[in-house]
């Protein structure tokens, strides 16, 4: 039977004004963690705030795993304020993660903002699987973060920033289109803000390239029972509200309906 875990915080690293990561111990009886899966974090043991915070896994090691968290409110602040050595209650890993059974070498990884975190773990897994580095295109509003760690898993990182502070000024789609024009691409794996997911999907549609999108939505239970985190998905001629937490969070771009 599945359970929640009280896990020791082994390390914490501040990446920017609003992004930090924590390293948690990985218990022996925890199921394998697939890139794109996430955990539901209980921000505090006293019960407030009430709901768990859904946080994607950004790296898995032999006996630990890393979560990258953006400070957005009281819950994430409480997590940030926990001391190294303290424990945190987690539910997971939950969700499906990226579909990698038929992964091809000629694929591209795209991440934007805090969405670079789950695709960092994807880059690590794909590098191990193919013994090669995958092109990684990362978009940031301003100052990039976590690049030092990310570069361990790919030597082919390209950056776009909205501010132009570094890399190409603009969006990742500009970088992506160059690749799509020049090479035969199998799949683009992407995580980022809603507008970016949509832009990448539309661009890849034009080049007939498959996309796997890691979707984000406000959640409650995290295991598929409460039906609050739905995403409109095409199934044949029908449009269905699928559960982001349980049926996703990764969906094929071809099935996601953006303008409901």
């Amino acid at each position: 039977m599945k359970k929640t875990y009280d896990l020791k915080i082994m390390d914490r690293e501040v990446l920017s004004q609003e992004v930090f990561k924590i390293l948690l111990e990985k218990p022996a009886d925890m199921p394998e963690i697939i890139p794109g899966q996430f955990f539901g974090l209980k921000a505090d043991d006293n019960g407030y705030p009430l709901l768990r915070r859904p946080i994607s896994v950004s790296r898995v090691d032999a006996n630990s795993f890393e979560l990258t968290i953006k400070l957005v409110g009281q819950g994430t602040e409480l997590i940030y304020n926990k001391k190294i050595g303290e424990t945190i209650n987690v539910l997971g890993p939950v969700g499906n993660g990226f579909y990698l059974e038929e992964a091809k070498k000629n694929s591209i990884i795209v991440g934007g903002g805090i969405g670079i975190s789950p695709v960092k773990e994807l880059a690590r897994v794909l590098k191990n699987k193919f013994n090669d580095d995958f092109p990684v295109l990362l978009g940031f509003r301003d100052e990039p973060f976590d690049l030092e760690d990310f570069s361990l898993y790919s030597s082919k990182i390209e950056i776009a920033t909205e501010s132009g502070i570094t890399g190409t000024k603009g969006y990742v789609t500009t970088l992506l289109e160059e690749h799509l024009k020049e090479n035969e691409i199998d799949t683009v794996y992407v995580c980022g803000p809603h507008v970016m997911l949509k832009a990448v999907k539309l661009l890849c549609d034009r080049y007939n390239v498959t996309t796997q999108l890691l979707m984000e939505e406000r959640m409650a239970c995290g295991i598929g029972a409460c039906l609050v985190c739905t995403c409109a998905i095409k199934e044949g001629t029908e449009i269905k509200n699928k559960r982001v937490c349980k049926d996703g969070p990764v969906f094929y771009g071809s099935e996601v309906v953006f303008d409901v």
Partner: peptide, 20 residues
């Protein structure tokens, strides 16, 4: 029934709103 559009949840002090 397909239910309502998203977002369908909002957290509140020691509670939540749903609109499934």
């Amino acid at each position: 029934r397909a239910g309502n559009p998203s977002p369908r949840v909002a957290e509140t002090p020691m509670g939540m709103l749903n609109s499934v």
